[in-house]
Computed example of a mutant assay.
Amino acid sequence: GDHLLTIACYDGMTFQDLVGQYLPVPGEAGVFRYVDGALVTAMLTGRPLLLDDFGWMPSGVQATLLPVLDHRRTLTVLDRPDEQVITAAEGFCVIINLNPGIGFGVTSPIRDRSAFELHVPVDLKAASKLDIPAGFIEVAQHLHTLADGEAANGIRRWVPSMRSLIKARDLTMVFDEHFAACAMLGECPDGEQRMKLQSLLTTELGLGIDVPEPLQARSL
């Protein structure tokens, strides 16, 4: 709802992106004002905070959250001109979302402080309702089944996300299925996984000898 605060995580983010910093006042040369970050605002007002694409938050910045997420529910911000020790109000909570295997991941101390994890697989039934070509859905089904089996052995396999499937649909509409298959191959890690995807795409899309290759820029 409208009460939810959000921080978009990225690989270069800093402590200040979470807690706040001095920013120039528009129209007043040389004048700066301290502005609380979304984390401090959420703690003070008792609102939920969503850390979007958390896997891209550097581990050093993730450490900022440790006293916030455990029994202390506090945060110390020395640069803040007002109260420097922030205590979370009732209703404050942190929600993390991420794509597994992308970015820096989640540190063990953060996982230890998480109440629960919810794994959301790609909904292939929804994909079929979005007019995604059947061949790409079959490829995704094969890879998801394979990934589920290997996950029990601690092996993480790349699988196409819903975003990847939607891109395949759009590229098929503009170009053709072969071009869309080449684009999907470029998303998959090189090696055995890419070879497996290449074989599935060739078979399920009925490409025959027109085997897709990863899209690649070539200098002249």
Rank of each mutant, 00 (worst) to 15 (best):
D2T: 10
I7L: 15
I7T: 02
Y10R: 14
D11F: 00
D11W: 00
D11K: 13
G12Y: 12
F15Q: 14
Q16T: 06
V19T: 13
G20L: 06
L23I: 09
P26H: 01
E28Q: 14
G30L: 03
V31D: 00
Y34K: 09
G37S: 05
L39F: 06
L39R: 06
T41L: 10
T41D: 05
L44Y: 01
P48E: 11
L49S: 04
L51Q: 10
D52Q: 12
D53Y: 02
W56H: 13
S59W: 12
G60E: 15
V61K: 03
A63E: 15
T64D: 00
L65E: 11
V68E: 06
R73H: 13
T76I: 06
V77S: 03
L78V: 11
R80G: 03
D82V: 03
D82P: 00
Q84H: 13
Q84D: 01
I86S: 08
T87M: 02
E90S: 11
G91S: 06
I95H: 03
I96P: 00
G103V: 07
T107E: 10
R111W: 14
D112P: 04
F116Q: 02
V122Y: 01
D123E: 11
A127N: 04
K129M: 10
L130P: 00
L130W: 04
D131N: 13
P133W: 12
P133K: 04
P133A: 02
P133C: 03
G135R: 01
F136K: 07
A140R: 07
Q141C: 07
Q141V: 05
L143A: 07
H144I: 15
T145E: 14
T145F: 01
G149E: 14
I155Y: 03
R157W: 09
V159W: 02
M162D: 05
R163K: 10
L165Y: 07
I166T: 12
K167Y: 13
K167G: 00
A168P: 05
A168W: 02
R169K: 15
D170W: 05
L171Q: 04
T172N: 14
M173Q: 13
D176R: 06
A180D: 10
A183Y: 08
M184I: 14
G186E: 08
C188P: 07
Q193W: 08
M195A: 15
L197I: 11
Q198K: 15
Q198M: 12
S199M: 12
T202L: 10
E204W: 04
G206S: 09
I209V: 13
D210L: 12
D210A: 14
V211T: 13
P212W: 05
Q216C: 09
Q216D: 05
A217Q: 07
R218G: 01
L220G: 13
